[in-house]
Every structure is written in C-alpha cells, then in structure tokens.
C-alpha cells in the first residue's frame, strides 16, 4: 500500500489508539490492495497524502463495532471530515472512537427513545419512525453501504474505494439517489453526520476532539471560562486562550 494513498499509517494507528505491532501482525488483504491499485488506475489522488483506501482497520478495542464496521466508520469519518490545510481530520481527533462509545452506551441503545409499535413510515414532519435504535441503524446501514458499494464498485467495500469515489458515494446518498436494501440511506446518513459533528466539536471527554484540536481550530476557548471581565473590553477584539476541556479542569 503506497504511503501516498493511505492515511499515514502512524497517525492512523494513533487515531485508533492501537498498540504498535498489532496491525503489523494482521494478515495482508490482497483483495483490498487490488482495489487500491484498480482505483488508482482511474482515480486522481487527492494529493494530500491521506484518506484513500485502507487495508485492515486496526480499531484496537472497539466497544460496539466489529472490524468490518470499524473499517467503514473510519473511512466514512475520514471522508466527511478529511485532514486538510484548514484543520484536523475527523479520524485523527478520534471521531470513530466517539461514535463507537456512543453506540455502546445509552444513546446507541435508544435508552431515551420511544420504540413501541406499530411502526409506519410517516411524513418527514413526523420525524424518526424506524423501529431501530441508533446502534442497530449503524449495523444495518453499514452492511447496506458495503453491499451497495460492492455492487457499484466491483466488489469493494466503502473503505476500499478511493477518496474521490467515497465522496461521490456520500454525495449520492445525501442527495437521495441511493437506495439501501434494509434501511433508508438518508436516515442513516443523517445520524452518521450528526454523530460525526458531535465527535468533532464535543468535549474530548467523549473520545473525540482529541487535544481540543477542533476548538483550537475555530478559536473556542473551551469550558469553564467566564467572560464577565472581558465581554465589554473584548468587543470586536480577538480573544484567545488555550482551550480548556472538562478533564483539564477536573
């Protein structure tokens, strides 16, 4: 696998909190490598040295996702929020970990959702009407996504596509052009996008926004600060402090 095509391996391992050596011990996936080669034959590289096809996702100890799902989540997050000259990428700040923990916990299990039947599709104004918890929606949605990609992209799973093809797939899903076999693709995408943004912008205590990199990027001072002394004196003046997180102050 070419360095150029993949998310820098070291960063990637770091992002997943994987111990060095674990990944190395994994068997190479010839299939995936084939796909990369194929894709590179026809696709432009995004030139930023990241984001392209992965081989095996060394998601060291997910609480909810299996390894196939973890591959998909990492690739999805990396496509939604790539590392670029603007700021950190979603994978390096830990969004996959954020989503994994969320799915393993009360939110993913739909603890505060009304999930009694009968179930009907309803109108968009009536909101979410599936019988599925968020975690179940991810499970089926990822399987659907991979099957759909396999059909459209010569047997490849989502994470095996080139960055530009991944973007294309998500754009098509977002604009309603894709039909999944089991779940409504748009509903799955909406949840994925919400959780991705939560992991990007939320407090690092939940596993995303590692090193408060996102807050640093936008200039949000974090938590625990008060502005009684500054709200007036900093009118139309740049205010900057090193962002603080809940753990910094605990």
């Amino acid at each position: 696998m070419s360095r150029k095509a993949g998310l820098p391996r070291r960063d990637f391992l770091k992002a997943m909190g994987a111990a060095a050596g674990v990944a190395a011990a994994l068997p190479p996936r010839a299939e995936a490598d084939e796909a990369i080669k194929r894709d590179h034959g026809k696709q432009e590289s995004d030139g930023q040295g990241h984001g392209a096809a992965q081989r095996v996702t060394p998601f060291q100890s997910p609480l909810f996702f299996n390894s196939v799902e973890a591959d998909a989540v990492v690739a999805l997050v990396d496509t939604l929020i790539p590392k670029d000259d603007v700021g950190p990428g979603g994978v390096e700040v830990g969004i996959p970990t954020f989503i994994d923990r969320a799915m393993a916990g009360a939110f993913g299990r739909g603890a505060r959702m009304y999930l009694q039947g009968p179930f009907a599709e309803g109108t968009p104004e009536q909101g979410y009407q599936l019988s599925l918890t968020p975690a179940e929606l991810y499970r089926l949605g990822i399987a659907d996504l991979n099957n759909w990609c396999a059909k459209s992209y010569g047997g490849n799973h989502f994470h095996q596509l080139s960055p530009s093809n991944r973007r294309l797939v998500l754009e098509e899903i977002e604009s309603g052009k894709v039909e999944f076999a089991q779940v409504p693709a748009g509903v799955f995408f909406q949840l994925l996008l919400q959780n991705t943004m939560e992991g990007y912008f939320g407090d690092p205590i939940h596993g995303g926004n590692r090193d408060k990199a996102t807050w640093e990027m936008i200039g949000f001072p974090g938590v625990g600060d008060g502005y009684i002394e500054t709200i007036e004196t900093y009118r139309n003046k740049k205010y900057f402090t090193n962002p603080k997180s809940i753990q910094d102050l605990s």
């Binding site: 505060r112 939320g202 625990g224 603080k244 809940i246 102050l249």
Partner: peptide, 15 residues
C-alpha cells in the same frame, strides 16, 4: 457543578 455541567454532548445533545 462546573466543569462537568459544561458538557455540550451530555446536556445539549443527549438531553
């Protein structure tokens, strides 16, 4: 109590 109450995910998102 601060800082734990200042958790956008827990309170604003997870209600």
């Amino acid at each position: 109590l601060a800082p734990n109450i200042h958790d956008e995910i827990r309170y604003a998102q997870r209600h």
